[in-house]
Structure formats: C-alpha cells, structure tokens
Design a binder for these strands. Sequence first.
DNA 1: CACCTTTCCTATCTTTTTGATAGACAATCA
DNA 2: TGATTGTCTATCAAAAAGATAGGAAAGGTG
Lengths: 159, 159
Amino acid sequence: MSWVGKRLEMITQKSKYALRALLVLAERADDGLILIGDIAETANVPKKFLELILGELKRHGLLHSQRGRSGGYRLARPADTITFGEIVRITDGPLAPIPCASLSGYRRCDDCEDEAKCAVRLVMRKVRDAISDVLDRTTLADAVRSGNSAALAARLAGI
Amino acid sequence: MSWVGKRLEMITQKSKYALRALLVLAERADDGLILIGDIAETANVPKKFLELILGELKRHGLLHSQRGRSGGYRLARPADTITFGEIVRITDGPLAPIPCASLSGYRRCDDCEDEAKCAVRLVMRKVRDAISDVLDRTTLADAVRSGNSAALAARLAGI
DNA sequence: CACCTTTCCTATCTTTTTGATAGACAATCA
DNA sequence: TGATTGTCTATCAAAAAGATAGGAAAGGTG
C-alpha cells in the first residue's frame, strides 16, 4: 500500500513523552517528589529532552517541582483533574486538524476564499469535536486505571 | 496563551488542497473533463503542486484523466462513494494520531516497553476511531451539500 | 504527418518543524 | 561549603512540508 513510509504521526513524540511522563507521576502520586532521571528511565524518554517538556508542563501549572537534594517533580493537581486534551494542547497545540476549525487556536486560512461555505472546514470542525470528546474526557487517573486493567487482561489471556 | 505560534496542523496543506480540488470536481461531476488549470484556480491551489496531488489520487483510483487537447480530470467514481477518510489516507497517511494506534498503518513504537499496558495507545485508539467515524462517513457528495446549505444559511443570515 | 495541447514524471530546492544535546546557572539541603 | 537537583538558553542535525522547473509522453486536430 502506497502510504507506507508516509507521515505516521499527528501527535508528536514530544506529546507522547509528556503523556508517558505524567502517567508515571500519576501512578506514583502518593510517593512524594520523583527525580527526573527516575521519570526518564521509567517512561523511556531522553532525560535532557524531558527537562524541556516538564518545564513547559510546570509553567502551565500541571506540575510542582523542587530543586536541590531530595528535590523532584510531582503532579500539581489530582490525577483525575488533568486531561489528555490539556496535556496535548500544551505540548502540541490545538487539537483541531486545521486552525480554521479550532476553538482554542482559531486562525483563518489565508488561502480561503469564503470561509462560510468551506466544506472542508465544516467537516474538520466535526473532527475537532470528535477528538476533543475523547481527549478532554480522559484523565490521567482514567488512563492509569485502563492501563492496569488492560495489562491484567493481557496477563489473563496470555498465561 | 502559550500555544500561539505552535504547530497548528494535523492535516497537511496537501490534504486540504486535495480535498478542495476533489470538491470542485464533485460539484462539476456532470461537466465532463476539467482542466487542471481550471481546478487550480477554482480551488486556489498552486498548479504545479496540484499536478503531484492529482497524480497520486489518480494512481489510487479516485480520478480519471485524459491527455491532449480536450483532456482533463474527472472523478473516477460517484461523489457519494468517495470519503474524506480515503482521500486523507492517500495524501497524508493513516488517520491515527500515532502509528501503534492505527488499523491501516499499524507500526509498533520502537520505544515502547509493553504495548499491552500502554495507556497512551489505548486512548489514541479511541481517538483514531472517533476521527475515522467522521471522515469515513463523510463523502464528497455530503460535503458539497453541506457546503451549499451553509452558504445559503450564511446568505440568509447576512442579507 | 506535423503541431499544439494537456497530462505525467523526475529532480531539485527552500523553509519549517521536530527531536535532541550541551553547558552554564540557580536553588536547596546536609 | 559543596554535592545535588531542577532551570534556562543556545544550538544542531535530520526530516518533513511546501513548492517549482523542465521535459517526456500521449492524445486530438488540421
């Protein structure tokens, strides 16, 4: 099939890293501060790159951190109040497939003749809604739960 | 807001061009062959770039074309049998946000420890389903209709 | 046939985005 | 004081996206 070798990502590696890192922090939410090296290793993310990502998440209020010996990171809010949508918007930008279909990051297409009758935009608005329907309703806590039960199911099926 | 200036596209310009071009062809489905220069002008797409796109769509069986004087392009199938999903998959690749969540273009993440319990993947599969629910159910014919009625509504509201 | 028109193919180019690393700096605590 | 740990800024290389150029091939017309 001819699309093999094409672009295969709508969500960047960076967002994937952010999600994995936050899931680690959500799982260990009761363990106090966690070292970035620890997060990097568990989530399998290059440590230096993770620094940038966690910094961004912190600046947006998702993380609390402390420097110095016995420092580290933890979630700034309960895991059931942080959604995938919020995270992806921070690391990748708006969820809409194209800017003219975005609520949070609307921008007119500069090559659009008449936005009112642009069928592409109307369809992409539906796509945006469908994406946000999933991502804005899924919290880190949900994901931890579903990850655990999926692992359990796989274990039961496999063994 | 801090995501201003970030990536604002999940669907490329190329796909937008493809959709606009095919919508032009769908609207004029009864007019026989249409010149690429005509399509380029109407859809507001750089002609040379459009050549590449239409070539790809043709090779995938969406278009019929003829060379020489009185040549041009037309849809190879009825407009109500061509979906947005099919088009976007040709021009941009799989709909899934990440390859490990794709049906049509599955590929394992090479940095994934245990796919079975990867919560990110589970969520992104839902996103994939949500996207394809919209795009695989929307045909060119649907879009032409909705574009027209949206234009009508705008006209009624505005004048 | 010769000629014009139009699609088709291949190569190339520039710009932007993505993913990643380096190194100095600042806070914290023993 | 000094080891530890997060924070900031700059920089880089590779890949993807967007676009253009030039000619080859096919089809119709006189």
